[in-house]
Nucleic acid binder design. Structure first.
Lengths: 159, 159
DNA sequence: TAGTTAAAGCAAAGAAGATTGCTTTATGGT
DNA sequence: ACCATAAAGCAATCTTCTTTGCTTTAACTA
């Protein structure tokens, strides 16, 4: 490797954390395991609960905006890239996306209770979350307006 | 690193290619540069032109199905992961997504000439391509039925 | 055919990460 | 206060990737 951009290794992490590399080697099997643990802890913090504004469009817009602002932070982008790179064929499900699915389900459930027609949680993941990640990963623009557009799109599907 | 799953390095590639590692070190600055070049060459081969069946839904369905089958191949998944990991903040645009955008634009153009109402090329990328990549990356199911569902969704937006 | 230049192979040296045994420090219980 | 256990640090070693000088092969030209 040459470019000093990333290069995530135990020695590098240990130095930044002010601990001995051996400590890391002993606690995690490899860097990916560490990253995954950290990323999951960071990305699924309980502060992120689904909004409840009384309207699905409003809920989704706020939710998408929070996520958009979160995943565009440089550390998050790094985590995201690392997790994508780390994830082997064997890996089945990701706690982060599970959390997002739960939140989406919750918003959908409330909307339907109010009598609103709503897309499925899967549709929300596919058409709001996925495009957001896609834009982050391929360095395309991600801003509140884009998040709002995605929400409008997914709602237009069921109208 | 421990797991023998991936671990893409010059020596490994060189051995599989039957050439000397030095040759690779001399031609490319680092593994990511090589991967990007190979991935772009592989993923944008001219064979992949947009279908032209006379119906946008049919075009998109075939197109999405081709892409779905392509990006779920193990080598493609590896490329995808490697490219995501490689892509630094500095990187602006990806030739692969450019090609996809061109193909989407072409299908949309033809559909509109026929008088069909059609989503934008951006919408197609966001709601068909992005979810496909998302599913591949997070090891979720990707099959023809899923591709077809995405196409139905994106078309439902503009009806 | 001989000569020149570029690319590929070879081999040795250098650098960085990964692994392991042992020592030291810290924490909790008696 | 003492002991026991576990975690963290240290240091030496091993492995692997990376780099570089030199040789060899190949291709193209005079």
């Amino acid at each position: 490797m040459g470019e000093g951009a990333d290069k995530i290794t135990f020695p590098v992490i240990a130095e930044r954390a002010g601990v001995n590399p051996t400590t890391l080697y002993r606690r995690w099997d490899n860097v990916n395991a560490l990253l995954e643990e950290v990323a999951v802890a960071a990305l699924t913090r309980d502060g992120e609960s689904a909004p409840d504004t009384g309207s699905l469009e409003q809920d989704l817009t706020e939710w998408a905006d929070i996520i958009a602002r979160d995943i565009t932070r440089p550390e998050r982008v790094r985590y995201l890239r690392a997790m994508v790179a780390a994830r082997a064929e064997t890996v089945s499900n990701c706690p982060v996306t599970e959390t997002r699915r739960d939140q989406a389900s919750e918003m959908v459930r409330r909307a339907r209770e109010r009598g609103e027609t709503a897309p499925t949680a899967s549709q929300i993941l596919d058409h709001v979350i996925a495009p957001l990640y896609y834009h982050v990963v391929f360095a395309l623009q991600v801003d509140p307006e884009y998040a709002r557009r995605l929400v409008r799109d997914v709602l237009a599907m069921v109208r």
